[in-house]
Design a protein around this nucleic acid. Structure first.
Lengths: 189, 189
DNA sequence: TACATACGTGCGTTATAATGTACATAGTTC
DNA sequence: GAACTATGTACATTATAACGCACGTATGTA
């Protein structure tokens, strides 16, 4: 998010006004729906006031919208990522290679790697911060994932989802290279 | 969200304290990271104060977390998805097959498909709702994506990201089956 | 035309958000 | 033991959030 943190209340004001006008509601009507005073709603929309979380709570509940719809910008565009242009992170003497295909971005809240593991390779991942989750999408090969003393074997096309804030281990069970896509989702960051 | 609107600031206080303790940070350290006073952080954690959006913005940016992580409950678990157990959606006389590997979920805000396209297959996707975005991760083959009168050719391992609220067309350029993972991300509404 | 209503803004008042500082408590070191 | 440091809480102060009400403007109706 490129927005300076001092200005978030102005962004929220603009978003709130856009939503209100999209629904052809007056400040009075929104006041009735949300239980927030008309005068305060006007202040918020003009960016003249910095609302507390309880006021915003009333607004999102009254209007049936989400916090993110008040915060996020709209930036459609195309981003192309070339596998051959990406340098991998290598571990296990180069037997484990992680290519960061889609980097983390505040708006996105996740990042995507392509991972390659050579035959016999095993790799333990340190626990991520609390709330981080991981999705693995198998591309080729056979992968064993150990999580919470449980072992899961994934074949071509399989997928798995688990909390990545605990230690977990990957092992290539195939007689050749195993590949998969891994999506690391951060708690709404 | 089942929380009474009078209590949202108390829920946020509990979440903030849980995150702080999970990271073994003191109030002083969080104050340094976020630029919010130690005294205010204490008030927030104890539910003694109802913070403004600007204060919460400083906190989420300083700690690299999100609003939703301050509001939502935490339900970690493992979900395993087997390719062979998934029935595809078929189009283009069965030449285009989409397997829903990870279904949409309110908490998740995205869904994941594995798509297979036979040689010569072409497929136009209807525009999704405004704000929907799509990520394509190539598994095998060669895919042409047309978006906004622009054409992008993706090879093994490549990836692309674009707004899916406009019409877009996929075409398999390979002399055999092309496969890719597609992640459809919905705006939090 | 006058009048009524809708709408958004300005203003004064009250409660409280946010801060810096002091303090109490606990733990560590000499 | 004393001295020091870390930590969270209490308190006084200042700025402002949030409200109810009044007002100016625009629109519609008799």
């Amino acid at each position: 998010m490129e927005l300076e943190h001092e200005q978030i209340h102005k962004k929220i004001g603009r978003s709130l006004q856009a939503i209100r006008k999209a629904r052809s509601l007056s400040l009075d009507q929104v006041a009735d729906l949300t239980g927030v005073s008309k005068a305060m709603l006007g202040q918020i929309e003009r960016g003249d006031s910095n609302p507390t979380i309880s006021i915003l709570w009333k607004i999102v509940n009254g209007l049936h919208i989400s916090f993110t719809s008040l915060i996020e910008e709209d930036t459609p565009q195309v981003n192309l990522f070339r596998f051959k242009d990406v340098e991998p992170f290598e571990e296990e003497d180069g037997q484990y290679r992680a290519f960061l295909m889609v980097p983390f971005d505040q708006k996105r809240q996740f990042e995507i790697y392509t991972v390659e593991m050579e035959e016999g390779c095993s790799h333990t991942s340190e626990p991520h911060n609390e709330g981080v989750e991981e999705y693995i999408l198998m591309t080729q090969g056979e992968l064993e994932v150990t999580f919470h003393q449980e072992t899961y074997v994934l074949s071509d096309g399989d997928a798995i989802h688990f909390s990545a804030d605990q230690p977990h281990t990957y092992r290539n069970l195939a007689k050749s290279k195993t590949m998969y896509h891994t999506i690391i989702v951060y708690p709404a960051v």
